[in-house]
Design a protein around this nucleic acid. Structure first.
Lengths: 237, 237
DNA sequence: CGACAAATTGAGCCGGATCAAACTGAGTGG
DNA sequence: CCACTCAGTTTGATCCGGCTCAATTTGTCG
């Protein structure tokens, strides 16, 4: 039951679950779906009747901007539920797109509502997870609003490293990060050209290695200082 | 009982409340507190044991940036609960500051937890309200990340007008908006000087009047078009 | 080998930042 | 009633970070 295991692990990283609660999650009906790169999971305006948990790969939420560009508002990694909000909002107000190949577990709204009703602490854990995502949005507003290109990119890469680490996805200091420079530029609000130059600067300073979807940060503190990154807003245990 | 009336009105604009639910909210113990301009309600790092509802005036959440500047991440108007997330996150990760003079109703976490437990639909309404705030954050990321100064400001002013309107705070097309140009520049990520020039441009084009804390938008559609504003993300009924 | 996405480099330009100064208006106190 | 103060607004001048446009290179996959 890999699908619900991922969810249990995620919720357990926030709350201690009772055996009953763990069983209830394990018993949640879910449907495994494979994602191909750049696959569109939802479009802005859709009204899904289910939610999904990311099991493998990464997912982004983004919006198309007038002139063919796109702003990425958030990345999601293993254990995240990018469209959990549809449980209460109905419509989804941005595109949800797979980054690389991946796998998700789809759970019907109906089943989620039932488990929330029967297990208030699970409901609270779900609510909390949407609050952490909101905290990440706030941080991105600060990052994009007031920081230089170098700081912005440093901050984003720190966040990616820490979140992947928390999801158990960093081995030997290397993080599998299937993002292209286009993704990074769409997320930071920088042009692709300038993002490239900024990344080169980070490499030149020996702060980052990032090739072929593998990210390493030799000196975490130095990069965090450059990007004014502090992981508090991720509310990790 | 003005405190809980405001809350009832806010929740009722989302859900239809049963008489029991309405009574439960009316029975919530709350404490009225007056706010003076620029009063700091919470500082980043605080661990409040209560939440508050804005009754009058406006509140912002913001973070200090290295060089003495500040990025505002969100504004809150009557009926909003800016620190509702502390119910599940504990620590607050940004400053919460009053804009002009105002009044809030403070409710203990304990009492909120109890009402959520006894009335799952009220819990859902609270959850939903945090999801709407998160949707606003996402929109700000897009706004700040990819739009020109003119579009950014237009978008923000449209949002302010619509949210105030939804809270019943617009009369004869005029919105009481106690923001200074400093606030607007801290929220849009523009310098105070450039914000001023941008605002003048909007005035020159006849799209906005904004003097002495009173905002009017003669041609709503024109300003919305300039700012690529669509109110969908506010999830109003 | 060709095709195509992703990454890289170069050159020129512009939107918005910065610095500095002046102006306005609402208190506040003598 | 006037002088003083102080926050907020406005104006002017200059500068620079990041954008744009255009071309080249690299890597990957069929």
């Amino acid at each position: 039951m890999p699908a619900t295991n991922t969810l249990v692990a995620k919720l357990e990283s926030q709350f201690h679950l009772t055996p009953e609660e763990r069983d209830a999650i394990a018993a949640l009906p879910s449907r495994l779906v494979a994602l191909s790169p750049d696959e569109i999971i939802h479009r802005a305006g859709d009204r899904p009747t289910d939610c999904f948990v990311v099991l493998d790969g990464m997912v982004s939420s983004s919006r198309d901007i007038e002139d063919g560009k796109r702003q990425i508002m958030s990345f999601y990694v293993r254990g995240d539920m990018p469209d959990l909000r549809t449980l209460h909002l109905g419509v989804i107000d941005c595109d949800v797109i797979a980054i690389g190949p991946g796998q998700i577990a789809v759970i019907e709204h109906e089943d989620l509502r039932r488990i929330c009703q029967q297990h208030p602490r699970i409901a609270a854990a779900f609510w909390r997870s949407t609050l952490v995502i909101a905290a990440i949005y706030r941080e991105w507003i600060v990052n994009i609003g007031h920081r230089s290109a170098l700081a912005r990119l440093s901050h984003l890469l720190c966040e990616m490293m820490v979140r992947h680490e928390a999801a158990g996805l960093v081995h030997d200091g290397v993080c599998e990060l299937p993002l292209t420079q286009m993704h990074l530029s769409a997320a930071t609000g920088l042009s692709a050209v300038h993002l490239n130059r900024t990344l080169q600067e980070l490499r030149k300073r020996g702060l980052v290695t990032f090739y072929g979807g593998r990210l390493a940060i030799p000196d975490r503190n130095a990069l965090a200082a450059l990007g004014n990154f502090s992981p508090d807003y991720l509310y990790l245990p």
